[in-house]
Amino acid sequence: MTGEDPYPHHRPNVGIALFNQDGQVWLGRREGTPGPWNWQLPQGGIDAGEDARTAALRELEEETGIPAKAVDIIGEIPGWIAYDYPPDVREDPRFHKKRHLGQKQRWFALRFHGSECDIDLASHAEVEFDAWRWGELAEIPGLIIPWKRAVYEQVVDAFKHVAKA
């Protein structure tokens, strides 16, 4: 193996599967995104020089208000999982800042041991989600926009041992 990046034209990103004590996963409804595929797990970019684990905790807090002290990292998918933006997304003027072909993601499973009072979707200036709920891990692929679905199927498979039996 040469150590070369298999996805040099994809934006580095993290994804978080946040599980409660009952094995249910946190689902967020994308703010301002019409249904039916407007639910997803928290995710976001890795800043230059930032460790993926640090990025996961930062993104979780930015998108949900949940502080790092309220979670434990309990799993990680090794390596990158990538998806490409479809042509209509890359050509849409609203996405002019997306200079990448897609995103490459590092995925983490976290256990939530805080209080639901810790969840504050408006805690950050850029609100990502306008609603949230606990759900079943297996339901996620059917809720996610189709061009991200293959990634979420891999996440479900990797973290099914953490989910509610």
Rank of each mutant, 00 (worst) to 15 (best):
F95E: 11
P78W: 08
E59I: 07
D92T: 01
Y85R: 00
A70H: 02
P86G: 04
D84Q: 13
D92P: 00
D84K: 07
E76A: 08
G65S: 08
I73L: 15
A68L: 09
Y85W: 15
G65P: 02
W107S: 07
D84A: 14
P87G: 04
I77A: 02
H113L: 11
F95C: 06
H113R: 12
P93F: 04
E63A: 08
P93N: 07
D88Y: 11
L110C: 10
R99Q: 12
P86I: 00
R94L: 06
D72T: 14
A82T: 09
G102R: 01
A109Y: 05
A82K: 02
Y83Q: 10
R111D: 11
F112Q: 02
T64W: 03
W107Q: 04
I66P: 00
D92R: 00
I73N: 06
P78D: 15
G75E: 10
D72K: 14
E76D: 08
L57S: 04
W80M: 01
A109W: 03
G65F: 05
D84H: 13
I81G: 00
E59F: 00
D88G: 04
R106K: 13
E91R: 13
L101Y: 06
D72S: 15
G114D: 09
P86Q: 10
R90N: 03
Q103L: 12
R58P: 05
F108E: 04
D72F: 12
D72P: 06
G79H: 07
D88T: 05
E61A: 10
E63Q: 15
Y83N: 11
P87L: 03
K104T: 08
E61V: 01
E63S: 12
A109R: 03
R58S: 12
K97I: 11
I74L: 06
I81C: 03
K104E: 07
K98N: 13
I81S: 03
A82V: 12
E91H: 10
G102K: 02
D88C: 05
G79L: 05
P78H: 10
F112C: 04
D72H: 10
A109K: 05
R90F: 01
L101F: 09
R111P: 02
I81K: 03
H113G: 11
A68T: 02
E62W: 07
L110V: 05
F108Y: 15
H96R: 09
W107V: 07
Y83H: 14
R111V: 03
Q105I: 14
F95S: 09
A68V: 00
A70Y: 05
I73Q: 07
G65C: 09
E76R: 11
E76Y: 11
E76Q: 14
Y83T: 13
G75V: 07
P78S: 15
H96E: 10
F108V: 06
K98W: 11
E116M: 13
V71R: 02
K104S: 08
H100Y: 14
Y83E: 12
G65L: 08
K97M: 12
D92V: 00
A82P: 04
Q105M: 12
H100Q: 12
R106H: 13
I77N: 02
R58I: 09
I74R: 13
G75W: 05
G114W: 09
D84M: 05
H96T: 07
S115N: 14
W107R: 00
T64K: 00
G114L: 09
H96F: 14
F112T: 02
E91G: 09
P86S: 06
P87E: 12
A109H: 04
P87W: 04
L101W: 08
L110H: 03
Q105D: 10
